[in-house]
Amino acid sequence: MKLNIQNETSRLRVVVLGTAESCGPTPKVEDCYDPKSIQHVLAGTYPREEDMILEMEAVANVFKKYNVTVFRPDVLKDCNQIFSRDIAFVIDDKVFKANILPDRDKEIEAIRYVWNKIDRKNRIILPEECHVEGGDVMPWNDYIFIGTYTGEDYPDIITARTNIHAVHAIKDMFPYKKVKAFELRKSNTNPKENALHLDCCFQPIGKNKAIIHKNGFLIESEYEWLINFFGKDNVFEITKDEMYEMYSNVFSISEDVIISEKNFTRLNNWLRKQGFTVEEVPYAEIGKQEGLLRCTTMPLTRD
C-alpha cells in the first residue's frame, strides 16, 4: 500500500476508522486517561457501547458515500479501540507507530494487518524515549505542526502525550519540512482547562482556514503565530465550552467537505457560509471520552 499524507484536507482515499465493538464496561476512575471521561464516570453518564457503535457507523456511511476505502481494527474483547489516531499516524509516505500509554499497545496489534500492507522501510518505530500520539501531529504542506508539553511535571500529567524528544525525532526525519511545536495547556482534573492533543484546540480546514481555541495554548505568542499564519478572517475561534464539546475535532474528507458533529450549530453554519459541504453526524457520546472525529480516524492516503 502506498501512503501519502501531506496535509489535513486533500481528498481522502484510504482511512482507518476505529471501532466501538466490545469496548468493555464503564471504566473505574483510576483507569481513565483523561478528565472528561472521569467526569462522566462519576456522573453516571459514561457512553454506552451500542450508542457509540451507531455513531461510528454514521461516519462509516459518510465514507462510503464519498468512495473512501475504510479499514477497521480487528475487534479485541473488552478493549476500547475507538481512537485510532492515538495509535499511529502518517506523514508523507511513512507510518509511525505511536509510543502510547503502555496499556494500549495491544490496540496496535489489532491493525497489524494494515501495517503489514505497508513497505517495511516506511514503517517507523521511534526510540522509546519519544512519546507521541497522532492527535498531536498535523502535517500541513511545508509544515508539520506538533502539540507538546515540556513542563517539569510532565511525568505526572496523564494528559501530556507528546514530549520534546518526539518533536526532535520528527524534525530529524523530515529536514525538508518546517516543524513547529506548540506548548499545550494540560490538566488531569479539569477538562475545560485541558487540551489533550493539538487537535483538541486547533485544526486546519480547507486550503487556508482553521478552527482554534486560544486557551488551549500555554504560550500566547504561539497562538498568535497561528492567527497570523492563517489570517484572522480565516480563523473560527471557539469558546472554552465549545472546546470542551470538541468543536475543533472535525474531520476533512477534502478541501470542500467536512464531517462535523450535528450539534455544532455555530460552527456548522459558519462552515457552510465559507462554502464547505458539512456532513453532520451524531458523535456526542464518543465526545464524552475527550475525543471526536479526528481522533477516531487515521488517514493513510490523500490525493
Rank of each mutant, 00 (worst) to 15 (best):
Y223N: 04
K192Y: 03
C201A: 10
C200G: 13
L198Q: 09
L218R: 12
K214I: 04
N141Y: 13
F182C: 08
E237Q: 13
I170S: 08
E242P: 12
N228H: 10
E152D: 13
Y247N: 08
H197R: 10
I157E: 10
Q203W: 00
D153R: 02
F229W: 05
A169K: 15
E245A: 15
N163P: 06
I146D: 09
N208Q: 03
Q203R: 14
K192M: 12
A195N: 07
M138A: 12
G206H: 12
N194C: 14
N163H: 07
G216V: 05
E220W: 06
T148S: 12
N208T: 06
G206I: 07
I164C: 04
L184Y: 01
F230K: 10
G147I: 01
L184E: 05
S187V: 03
T239K: 09
I219D: 05
K186W: 03
F145T: 02
E224A: 11
A195M: 07
A169T: 05
E193R: 00
E193T: 01
Y244A: 08
I238M: 13
I144W: 03
L196F: 14
F229N: 12
A181D: 12
Y149M: 02
K192L: 07
L198P: 10
S221I: 06
E245Q: 15
N194I: 00
W140F: 14
E224P: 01
T150Y: 00
K178W: 00
T150K: 08
G147D: 07
N163E: 01
L198V: 09
W140A: 07
T159W: 06
N190D: 15
S221A: 13
M138I: 15
V167R: 05
K177D: 02
F182M: 05
Y244G: 07
I227R: 14
V235H: 04
N215K: 15
Y244Q: 08
D153E: 11
H197K: 09
A166L: 03
K180M: 14
I144C: 07
E183G: 03
P191A: 06
P139C: 05
F202P: 01
R161C: 10
T162G: 10
I205R: 11
H165Y: 13
E242K: 12
I158T: 14
W225H: 13
D172W: 02
N188M: 09
W225C: 07
I157S: 10
A166T: 02
P139T: 05
T150A: 03
G151W: 06
Y223E: 04
V179C: 11
E193F: 02
R185Y: 01
I146L: 02
D136W: 07
F230E: 10
Y244K: 04
D136H: 10
I211L: 15
G151Q: 08
H213S: 11
A181N: 11
D172P: 00
I238R: 05
K209D: 04
F217I: 05
E152Q: 10
K209M: 13
W225K: 09
K192G: 01
N194E: 08
I212K: 06
T148Q: 09
V137I: 15
C201L: 06
I211D: 03
A210S: 14
N141C: 06
D142P: 05
M246P: 00
K240V: 09
E222S: 15
F145K: 03
C201E: 04
N234E: 08
N208H: 02
E245V: 03
S221K: 15
C200S: 15
E193I: 00
